[in-house]
Design a protein around this nucleic acid. Structure first.
Length: 666
DNA sequence: GAGCACTGC
């Protein structure tokens, strides 16, 4: 590398990844291993073909005899569908025939389906109906190294199921060298007394990938400002390195917009006649249309530079990347069991993440990865991230385990046991909602139904309480809208005023929940569920369409429980009468009493215990309005402030009315 | 005055 004008320069890594080979030659040995050992752990890089080839090997080797199915779980919906479509092509069938997939809202399987791709969360759901997963002869848990809560819980369940179904074959696929942890988990010598047979339960096999070599370079001294360093590194690559697009990993929207702007401004200083730079942002908050630009080829004489969050680490693959710039940081979610507050903080990446990021450079030809930290810094990184199950609110998962018949969740065999406080907090919340009884047993029908509903426990409770408040149809809509996990409003540069006035059209005096109800009602009536309505009202069409699906699914559940959903009121009016609004507010209190707060004279909120200062999130209707007592959907700490989102006014007396146990004094 | 990424028959 030539001159570096900002102090720190890059030096080559001491170790280089080795050259890699394809999977086909391992076919026989793989089949032998699966036949011989109940659990097979496959270590293979991206491009090794494990997800697409292994299911086909197994199908051709007779693992689908007697109507049995090979199931392959993926942590993400897109992966489940795209891999299934690829395998169907190679297998020579239409998707949904012998090869199919199943994800929430979309079932592309049939009686003939023998190879089935599905999300790991969905397979856990299947266990509610078929506890031994008896339709499957083989279950392959793909991307297990990502350690999502669902795949961790699934592995615990599979370990249990295996004891009752010794013929079941389990394959765990992992891209990094965490294989030994998985092997030990299944071998567990304490489990079955004495016999040394346990060592033969799980075998490890390593596959070579078909990725190209990647040169890894480190800074010779640490940088104070990785955003600035990322920008200068981009220009350095641009002026010194051959053609090829650049992928830069930063932590969030703010940094990304800052970097994109800095590149645009500085690229005017490039020598006349030389190639220019096309900077593009990529993060989950962008609409699908805005995200599509990163997949398009750059115009002639332009080098494409993508500034991305972690979305580009595993979820999104962009072709043509030759250079990766890794800031070394990521925003990670954590959960404080003492306060029940989630936080989102910038954290150093793990070695596993750093390897995954670097690997994004070598997909089409040999590449280079510029790490914005020293080689010493790299060695001080943790091997892997803390598993999600050890830093999340566990209430929804405890509920699921209970429904699956795991009564003693404290003794459930977790791959990584969550801290005791997380378990206690979850159990306490479920008890206060009435999902668990005094003996921590799932209540019937309330707790069982809450477990079956695909929304978080507090909203599940709200839904099941709604018939007694006469507002089930409205709460259904509110449940769907609040569980979307994203902002329904689209942000446009310099259109703040327009955005505010558009939002005001739907605003409800009572707060955000009724505002969301108004938005949905307008979308399905006046807007006829069309994209045009969303465009005119600065709404995210993808999310609104999703709300329609979620609502329909929740409605089907409730009808199965024998609860009648009367839609007559909902469709006749976009602004419910006062009395109806109050019923909705009361009903929300019955589910969200644990999320209550009171506004202080200075406009901030305090929780009931008086221990935490909360701020209305700027996206809330209550951001600059006066209120007294409120309940909120969500609380999250970012930077130095703790924000509450989706806020609705309530009366203090309702808290005592609907949660006397929780709020009893002395 | 602002949130990483996923997900549930």
């Amino acid at each position: 590398m030539a001159d570096f004008d900002l102090g720190a320069a890059f030096i080559p890594a001491l170790h280089k990844p080795s050259e890699l080979l394809p999977i086909a030659k391992h076919r026989e040995s793989l089949l032998y291993l699966v036949e011989a050992s109940p659990v097979t752990i496959i270590v293979g890089q991206t491009g090794s073909g494990k997800s697409t080839q292994i299911p086909q090997f197994l199908a051709h080797a007779g693992w689908c005899a007697n109507g049995k199915i090979i199931g392959i779980t993926q942590p993400r919906r897109v992966a489940a569908t795209t891999v299934a479509i690829r395998v169907a092509e190679e297998f020579g069938c239409e998707i949904g025939k012998e090869v199919g997939y199943s994800i929430r809202f979309e079932d592309a399987t049939s009686e003939n389906t023998r190879i089935k791709f599905l999300t790991d969360g969905l397979l856990i759901r299947e266990a509610l109906v078929d506890p031994l997963l008896s339709r499957y002869s083989v279950i392959m848990v793909d991307e297990a190294h990502e350690r999502s809560i669902s795949s961790d819980i699934l592995l615990g369940l599979l370990k249990k199921i295996r004891k009752k179904r010794p013929e079941l074959r389990i394959i765990i696929s992992s891209a990094t060298l965490q294989a030994e942890d998985f092997r030990q988990f299944f071998a567990d010598p304490n489990e079955e007394s004495g016999d040394k047979e346990n060592n033969d339960i799980a075998s490890i096999v390593s596959l070579e990938g078909r990725t190209h070599p990647i040169d890894v370079l480190y800074l010779d001294s640490p940088t104070e400002d990785y955003v600035e360093k990322a920008v200068s590194t981009v220009f350095d690559i641009h002026t010194n390195e051959p053609k090829g697009d650049i992928l830069v990993f930063l932590t969030g929207r703010e940094e990304i917009e800052q970097a994109v702007q800095a590149v645009s401004e500085r690229s005017t200083q490039l020598l006349p006649g030389s190639d220019s730079i096309l900077p593009l942002p990529l993060y989950a908050g962008l609409t699908t249309e805005q995200q599509m630009y990163v997949f398009e080829e750059a115009p002639e004489n332009f080098r494409k530079v993508i500034f991305a969050t972690n979305i580009a680490e595993a979820s999104v693959t962009i072709n043509g990347i030759v250079y990766v710039v890794d800031s070394g940081f990521v925003k990670l979610q954590a959960y404080n069991p003492q306060t029940g507050i989630e936080s989102l903080t910038v954290t150093p990446v793990s070695k596993a993440s750093a390897a995954q990021r670097a690997g994004r450079a070598g997909r089409t030809k040999p590449g280079k990865c510029f790490r914005l930290y020293t080689e010493e810094g790299y060695h001080s990184l943790p091997d892997a991230n803390i598993p999600e199950i050890q830093r999340s609110n566990l209430a929804p998962f405890i509920l699921q385990l209970k429904a699956l018949g795991v009564d003693n969740v404290l003794r459930f065999d977790f791959l990584s046991p969550p801290p005791a406080e997380l378990m206690t907090r979850a159990l306490e919340l479920l008890y206060s909602l009435g999902a668990l009884d005094d003996y921590a047993k799932l209540t019937k029908p309330l707790g069982m139904r809450m477990a079956e509903l695909a929304v978080e426990p507090m909203m599940a409770k709200t839904l099941l309480a709604a018939p007694s408040f006469g507002c089930l149809s409205e709460i259904l809509t509110i449940a769907a809208m609040t569980s979307l996990g994203g902002n329904i409003w689209i942000q446009h540069e310099g259109e703040k005023k327009k955005a505010e006035s558009t939002k005001r059209k739907f605003a409800a005096e009572e707060g955000d929940h009724l505002t969301l109800l108004n938005v949905y009602q307008a979308f399905v009536t006046k807007g006829r569920k069309e994209a045009r309505f969303c465009h005119e009202n600065l709404l995210n069409f993808k999310l609104m369409a999703r709300a329609v699906s979620v609502r329909a699914q929740l409605k089907r559940y409730l009808e199965r429980f024998g609860l009648n959903v009367d839609e007559s009121l909902a469709s006749s009016s976009t602004s419910p009468a006062n009395n109806q609004a109050q019923q909705i507010q009361r009903c929300l209190t019955a589910g969200y009493f644990a999320h209550a707060a009171r506004m202080q004279p200075d406009g901030t909120f305090r929780n009931v215990a008086g221990t935490t200062t909360l701020h209305a999130h700027p996206s809330s209707i209550m951001f600059n309005r006066k209120a007294d007592w409120v309940i909120f959907h969500e609380v999250m700490e970012t930077g130095s402030k703790t924000f509450i989102r989706d806020i609705t006014r309530i009366e203090k007396s309702w808290l005592l009315e609907y949660a006397p146990e929780f709020y009893k004094t002395g």
